[in-house]
Design a binder for these strands. Structure first.
Lengths: 222, 222
DNA sequence: TGCTGTGAAACCGTTCACAGCT
DNA sequence: AGCTGTGAACGGTTTCACAGCA
């Protein structure tokens, strides 16, 4: 599938751009476009032509010199590179507002991802169902469900203090990756891929930029 | 307030780490810790001592040589650097599951952030209230509300195709920053700070890492 | 003595520019 | 002729190591 062994390490920036590229290719494919050059991709989707080529070069040679890329081919190759050529099963821990919204969301239930269960430890929530009818189960059942459904990814929408132990429970249940939305940095766990997504930090980043672009009394140099 | 003019441009990586640092200081302050060294911060919170010092150095000198940092002092200084020394008013566009979850969430209603309204264009939702009793208003009212409440940040939890026009509406209403959760990259808009947060991409990133760490038939070098 | 603040070195990712293939 | 794939130049960030101050 690949003409080249992937490098030891691929940067986050690259995988991020490859995801954006895949999205662009899906759009072009939907429009029936057969061939596209890196230049055209760059112009239409706000990317950088040289960077597209460099990113792809880490995994092989996918284009035709003098022509460009065959859209359907490159799309399939990229899906393979990103591990999206087969479905991935997801569970959500924490049936609060955010957990339920994520479990029900299209983002987490399309293009090969599927949320199969929602867990909580609150008696009042257990036994209920989300708005898309996903059952809310007791977190004690997680190991059984995770094995039965071959769950690969666990999404954490629980309080910060519950995160470290939840990570251990997930790993022991055979889950191999965690997407953590709680406001705590989950340290790397051997055998687990961890991604921390801290919603507060996005707002704080905007706050910083607002402050830096003139909404505060300019400091006088001391 | 600052002993140094901030540099022309501060990297995203730096502001991200400063937010994490502020969170760490809040914890220490809550424990009554008076002084801390960059080394201690690094060990306890999984940071890097040299990097803490370098990040802070962009804004001034905050420590005491031979001693470390006074926790309450540095906390306040950092809040100022990040623009968190005054409250910021937020509106959420899109009263779907995600929009409501965000509008109600603690992340968006603490440490100086406050969601004051939820907007939608769906007649069936308008007039209703979120679970924390936030009114769902007609998006046509946004300009009036935004001015009246001095809204600074708009959060987008709407379909991708509605994003560009929503950005324009927000800017025209005096809103200065946008946090976009829709699966589309909102291009920079003059006069607007934009941050795109694409939830799908986080899952795809984990998928890539799972694929790269051995869940697929190792390609044979051609 | 001990820790901050900071030049200098090392590292990494991006951009450039063109050789090479179709 | 045209566009990919890529070595080389560039720029920015991280790490190192120590001078300087409390």
């Amino acid at each position: 599938m690949l003409d080249k062994d992937p490098p030891e390490s691929v940067s986050e920036a690259t995988t991020h751009r490859l995801s954006l590229l895949l999205r662009s290719l899906r759009i072009l494919d939907g429009e029936g476009v057969g061939t596209v050059s890196s230049q055209q991709l760059a112009e239409r989707f706000g990317l950088n032509a040289a960077q597209i080529r460099k990113d792809l070069a880490q995994f092989g040679e996918f284009g035709i010199r003098g022509v460009g890329y065959r859209v359907p081919d490159l799309k399939e190759k990229l899906k393979w590179v990103l591990g999206l050529d087969r479905p991935r099963t997801v569970v959500v821990l924490g049936a609060g507002h955010l957990g339920q919204a994520l479990a029900d969301s299209k983002n987490f239930n399309s293009e090969g991802f599927k949320v199969v269960a929602l867990f909580d430890n609150d008696r009042r929530k257990i036994g209920g169902r989300s708005r898309t009818d996903l059952p809310i189960r007791d977190i004690a059942e997680l190991p059984v469900v995770a094995r039965a459904e071959s769950v690969e990814i666990g999404v954490l929408a629980i309080p910060a203090e519950a995160v470290p132990s939840a990570a251990v429970v997930l790993r022991n249940a055979g889950v191999r990756a965690i997407l953590n939305f709680a406001p705590i940095t989950l340290a790397p766990v051997p055998g687990l891929e961890v991604k921390n997504v801290d919603l507060t930090l996005f707002l704080e980043n905007l706050s910083f930029r607002l402050a830096a672009t003139g909404d505060r009394p300019r400091p006088k140099r001391g």
